[in-house]
Amino acid sequence: MPEAPDIATAWRCLLERTEGRQGDPLVVQAAYEQPRLRALFPFPSHGCLKFMRLAPPPWPFDLGEEELPFIVSSNPGYKVYATRYERLLGETRTPEEAAALLVANLPDGVGPPVGG
C-alpha cells in the first residue's frame, strides 16, 4: 500500500480511490464529513476504517499503539468498536450514523474541538 506522508494526502487518496488506498467509499465519505475524523489519519484495512492521531512512520508500523474507535462495514449496516474490538459501541444502518457514533466515542482532545 502506498504510504501517505500526511493526513490530508491520506484523505485525498481515499476519496479519489487511489490504488492501494481504498476503503468502503460510503464510510470514507461519511467519515470525511466529520471534522473531528477529518483531522485524523484514516487507515482502511480488512473492511474497517481505523484512525490514527498522526500520519504513521514508514512501514512497518504498529497500529496497536492507537486507542481510537473504528468502523467495520458489515452487510447490512455498520458496526463501531472500541479499540482492538474491546467492545461493540453500536450498530447503525448508515455510514453517516456510524461516523457520528464514532465521533461521540472519541477521547477528549482528539481532533478539533466540537464546533471548531
Rank of each mutant, 00 (worst) to 15 (best):
R38G: 02
L101E: 08
C13A: 08
N105W: 02
R93V: 13
V110K: 04
P2A: 14
P56G: 05
R36E: 14
E3W: 07
L68S: 04
N75I: 09
A4T: 06
A10F: 10
A4N: 10
E19L: 12
P58Q: 04
L88N: 06
R87Y: 15
E33H: 06
N75L: 14
L106Q: 05
K50N: 08
T83W: 08
E91Q: 15
E91G: 14
L54N: 13
L14M: 11
L26A: 10
E96G: 07
N105F: 01
Y78S: 00
G116I: 03
Y32L: 11
P5G: 08
P112H: 12
D6F: 03
P112F: 08
P35Y: 14
A31W: 04
E19M: 08
K50M: 13
G20E: 10
Y32I: 02
C48Q: 12
E16M: 15
G20K: 07
A8Q: 11
V28I: 15
R87C: 10
E19S: 09
C48K: 08
P69I: 11
L102Y: 01
R17I: 00
S45Q: 09
L101R: 08
L101P: 03
G116K: 09
A39F: 05
L37I: 11
A100K: 11
E65Q: 14
E33C: 04
L37V: 02
A39V: 09
P69C: 13
N105V: 09
W11A: 03
T92Q: 04
P44T: 02
V28N: 03
L106P: 02
L49K: 02
C13G: 07
H46N: 13
R93P: 00
P57K: 11
E16G: 12
D24V: 00
P113K: 08
S45C: 10
A100V: 06
W11E: 01
A100W: 02
E96K: 13
A82R: 08
F51T: 01
